[in-house]
Simulated scan of single mutants.
Amino acid sequence: MTDLTPPSGPLSRLGLSVIAATILVDQASKAIAEAMLPFGVTIDVLPFLALHRVHNPGIAFSFLAGFGGWPLIVLTAVITVVVLILWAQSNEGGRWATVGYALIVGGALGNLIDRAIHGYVIDFLLLHTGTMTLFVFNLADTALTFGPAILVIIYLWPRRQSAGTS
């Protein structure tokens, strides 16, 4: 059910805290992966999850890998600005909308930092089913998955009707 109160804006304490925490955790995990994980070697953690460091020159699933660094940096920056504008103009969703938008912005900025510094994004979490690889991702990608999921739930989940109303 949608909270009818406006979300805190991008510059609110909650918004900035979630963005900063997302970037910090993402960048720290990538630095650890770069320092500790051999490139391209799979280390099983769970039956469906392994550590496997790769460098992704594209976006999700290496899509647009042939574009090169600067076009993807510009594309990511433009999408991030659009999300910030949508967030600033949002008039309902409350705290959960703030968290959702902030996860998207933090995740996008985490991957943008990689792309600007390295020319690629560091991925190190391998999701698989036995011998079939599903995808390799990082914690910024996780934020970019959970942020929209939160927004879909709060904005598109059917609203309950109050007792006595139709």
Rank of each mutant, 00 (worst) to 15 (best):
V54C: 08
V54E: 13
V54F: 06
H55Y: 13
N56C: 06
N56T: 14
P57C: 10
P57T: 14
G58T: 07
G58C: 04
G58M: 04
F61E: 05
F61D: 09
F63P: 05
L64T: 13
L64E: 15
A65S: 15
A65R: 13
A65I: 14
A65G: 11
A65D: 11
G66M: 03
F67I: 06
F67M: 02
G68T: 12
G69R: 14
G69T: 15
W70L: 07
W70R: 12
W70M: 07
P71L: 02
P71C: 09
I73H: 12
I73R: 08
I73G: 09
V74C: 12
T76Q: 10
T76E: 05
A77M: 01
A77Q: 04
V78H: 05
V78K: 01
V78I: 14
I79A: 09
I79P: 00
I79D: 04
I79K: 02
T80A: 10
T80V: 06
V81S: 13
V81E: 09
V83N: 03
V83I: 15
V83R: 01
V83F: 02
L84I: 09
L84R: 06
L84E: 04
L86E: 03
W87V: 02
A88W: 06
A88L: 05
Q89C: 05
Q89I: 04
Q89T: 13
N91Q: 10
N91L: 05
G93D: 07
G93N: 05
G94C: 02
G94K: 06
G94L: 03
R95A: 11
R95M: 07
W96E: 08
W96L: 08
W96R: 12
T98Y: 01
V99G: 03
G100Q: 05
Y101E: 01
Y101V: 00
A102C: 10
A102L: 00
A102T: 06
V105N: 05
G106M: 08
G106E: 05
G106W: 01
G106D: 12
G107T: 10
G107S: 09
A108W: 00
L109R: 08
G110P: 09
G110F: 00
G110C: 08
N111G: 09
N111Y: 04
D114V: 00
D114L: 05
D114G: 05
D114T: 04
D114K: 01
R115Q: 14
R115M: 01
R115A: 03
R115L: 00
A116D: 09
A116S: 11
A116V: 08
A116L: 03
I117Y: 15
I117L: 09
I117H: 15
H118Q: 03
H118G: 04
G119K: 12
Y120G: 06
Y120T: 02
Y120W: 11
V121F: 06
V121M: 04
I122Y: 13
I122E: 10
I122V: 15
D123L: 00
F124V: 08
F124D: 12
F124R: 07
L125T: 13
L125W: 13
L125Q: 13
L125H: 14
L126A: 15
H128Y: 03
G130C: 04
G130N: 02
G130Y: 03
G130L: 00
M132P: 00
M132D: 13
T133Q: 11
T133F: 07
F135M: 10
F135I: 02
F135H: 12
V136D: 04
F137T: 05
F137C: 00
N138A: 10
N138T: 06
L139M: 07
A140T: 01
A140G: 06
